[in-house]
Design a protein around this nucleic acid. Structure first.
Length: 438
RNA sequence: GGAGGAGUGGCAGAGCGGUUGAAUGCACCGGUCUUGAAAACCGGCAUGGGUGAUGAGCCCAUCGGGGGUUCGAAUCCCUCCUCCUCCGCCA
């Protein structure tokens, strides 16, 4: 087992920000539409930290005293001064008890402190609009051209899937349960083509490809913020105490847990294709039909570790990369800037990409690009040095889907349907080996 | 899954109850020397926390994780994890 995230390390780094920028933290919580109790938690945490420091100081002094006396005993024994040694020994015994009591106190406080801290979300970026639901998200970049219109007979993708044998949800239900599509034939091939296309594009953009574990341990899930916030969202293998990944972000970002990277290596760019598993408990109904929301889907994730001064430029590059993918696939899309209420727990700024699915006449989220600033790296203990010999400081982490497959396929099927069949976008044809699904 | 062995600083590798945060070597950084480089020599080289001014200094903690014995633990005990060797099983 690697070193677990020690409470103190996690606590300290984040805490100094809370202390020094208390107003900003509170302001951020308001933008996130946080509850009153969350606002109160800020001061609770600071108060707990005050207590922690007080006990820490006392404990350090007691221990210093103990260490001094113990060394003395050692010296006296060497000189053969038995009796003097014995006197001091009884003295230390009293100290010991005191230390033990204080240590229990300290542990209890640290426990509370870390629980409190784990419940505080990231501070939103200044540009994040206030708001409570996805209705309050801001359109960052709209689709300027006319949206595709289909004929009266146009079918939603789940009907098309049946017609052309692209995927089979009933079959997935038989084998696993609802929300586990079985792709087959040209559908399976299309899936593989998209994966290859996205990975190749990422490679061209300078991302190193990773094939990570699909199951992760508790430390890993905690470090990227899935625990405790999204525990219910993940499949959990109790017997082995492992979680199925909800996104490749989790194992890939954790590559850097507990590391100090070289500044010259920044930004570090990684990509990986993985299936993603999400319980999506409680979401049923018409809006989640077909591939709109499933328990298992394929996704290519891009992850970057960036210098704090460059992380927002890096985020822009990510937006450009994703835009270019969607343009090449000839899919209409728009970019949203998430409002405080819709912003993920760990994120400072998130842009969502939505493609237009013409038969459903709906926008479907296919990517989410976020800058976590130091929120994840604090938990990860991912640092770099500004210069040789300088104190390590937290790096910024970012990630984005580039892209999530299931909904891309939904949109491709719907938008590209013709009386002859589903037309494959040009860029994919060398990957699929066919031009049309008929 | 069974039996045995091992986990020490960036790496290699000492230490196996008393100034050991930890010898030594390599790597790395700074310097002397050199026309330059190499070699040689000198010096530096962990992380987190407390105190303090986000300085110096002092102090605490950390030798796979957790717990215990002891005045005192890298060193002894328990437990978990990981790795190696052998056997078994296997895509």
């Amino acid at each position: 087992m690697s070193k677990p995230l020690t409470i103190s390390a996690t606590v300290m780094l984040q805490l100094h920000v809370i202390r020094e920028q208390r107003e900003r933290v509170l302001q951020g919580l308001k933008i996130r539409n946080a509850k009153e109790e969350d606002l109160l938690r800020v001061d609770q945490v600071i108060a707990l930290d005050d207590q922690r420091k007080e006990i820490q100081t006392f404990l350090d002094e007691s221990k210093a005293q103990r260490n001094r006396l113990s060394a003395e005993i050692g010296g006296l024994f060497k000189q053969g001064k038995r009796e003097e040694a014995e006197t001091i020994r009884t003295q230390v015994t009293g100290l010991k008890e005191e230390i033990a009591t204080k240590e229990d106190e300290l542990k209890a406080i640290q426990q509370k402190l870390s629980e409190g801290l784990l419940q505080l979300p990231n501070i939103p970026h200044d540009s994040v609009p206030a708001g409570s639901t996805d209705d309050d998200n801001e359109i960052h970049q709209n689709w300027e051209e006319p949206l595709p219109t289909l004929s009266e007979e146009a079918l939603p993708h789940w009907e098309l899937a049946k017609k052309y044998n692209v995927f089979d949800l009933e079959l997935g239900t038989k084998i696993a349960g609802s929300g586990f599509p079985v792709f087959r034939g040209k559908g399976a091939r299309l899936q593989r083509a998209l994966i290859s296309f996205f990975l190749d594009e990422a490679a061209k953009a300078g991302f190193e490809e990773i094939v990570p574990p699909l199951l992760v341990n508790e430390d890993t899930a905690r470090a990227t913020g899935q625990l405790p916030d999204k525990e219910g969202q993940m499949y959990y293998v109790e017997r082995d105490n492992l979680y199925l990944i909800p996104t490749a972000e989790v194992p890939i970002t954790n590559i850097f847990r507990d590391t100090i990277v070289a500044k010259k290596d920044l930004p570090i760019k990684l990509t990986g294709y993985t299936p993603c598993f999400r319980r999506e408990a409680g979401s049923y109904g018409a809006h989640v039909r077909g591939l709109n929301r499933v328990h298992q889907f394929d996704k290519i994730e891009i992850v970057q570790i960036a210098h704090p001064k460059e992380s927002y430029a890096v985020l822009n590059h990510m937006l450009d990369h994703i835009s270019s993918l969607l343009n090449k696939l000839e899919l209409p899309f728009r970019i949203l800037r998430l409002c405080g209420g819709d912003l993920g727990f760990t994120s400072a700024l998130t842009f969502d990409f939505e493609v237009y699915s013409a038969a459903q006449k709906r926008w479907l989220e296919v990517s989410s690009a976020s800058n976590f600033e130091t929120f994840q790296s604090n938990r990860l203990k991912l640092r770099f040095r500004e210069e040789e010999g300088a104190k390590p400081q937290l790096a910024h982490t970012l990630n984005a889907s580039a892209l999530a497959l299931a909904r891309i396929i939904a949109a491709l099927l719907e938008n590209n349907q013709t009386p002859e069949g589903i037309v494959i976008p040009k860029v994919l044809r060398t990957y699929t080996g066919f031009d049309i699904i008929d």
